[in-house]
Amino acid sequence: MDEHDSLLDAFLAGDLGSADARRFDEHLLDCEACWKAVRANRVGRLAAQVLRQPAPPSLADRVTFAVELAASARQQELAAGVPGWRRWRLVGGGAVVVGVLVTLLVLLPGRGTPAMPAAVRAVAQYAQAIAPPAGPVRGQTGGRQAVPAEMGRPVAVVAGGQRIVLRTWRLGNMEAVVAVSQRPFPMPAGATGAPGGGMAWSVRLGRLGLYCINGRTSELVAAPVPAAELPSLAARLPLS
């Protein structure tokens, strides 16, 4: 690279002082090669800027939720953590427990279910924000059947490698979260089969009831209502 090229690069980078930049501007009037190089640089820069596109409005919500989920998982890990001095005392007992568990796994038929699959935990975590219904649950307003109204924007999240779209609906005096995924939501420990055909299941997690229907897509409804009421609630919500 000669001095000429170095000057050109410095000019394009805006690294020249005002006096040198003015001199180079004058040079551009006479030098066809430099003029073309500056011109092409500018065209390339402006053309690339055509590719800018604003971020989708829901992206900030999605990122916030994903980070909150990760923070919550970290909190649970910390809460379940055992102090170092106790760890050694537990090693001996742990070996016995492992032996018993292995024996049980060999003796008992069937496959173990993950206690709380990440996808289900993500939906439950998201639904924690739902306020409990004010007064007795009612899906009617003024004697008429209430129409579900979507609250806020849908939030998409990937949990346990599963892509989930979460929507919050208001129906009468209660709110519910509907999570939709192309892959079936794994059945957590403690879940039981539920009406709804296919591989429907429901489970109670604290104040939340979760009800999953598996069809072409998998839908998981989460609401602070008794599990028995979830199938009828799900039937009144837009699920896809």
Binding site: N41, V43, R45
Partner: peptide
């Protein structure tokens, strides 16, 4: 950056866009 921009401008020119004087 400068080489890429110039190359991009060249490719756009080849594709039918003019950036002459």
């Amino acid at each position: 950056l400068h080489r890429g921009r110039r190359r991009l401008a060249g490719l756009l020119t080849e594709a039918g866009m003019s950036h002459g004087r």
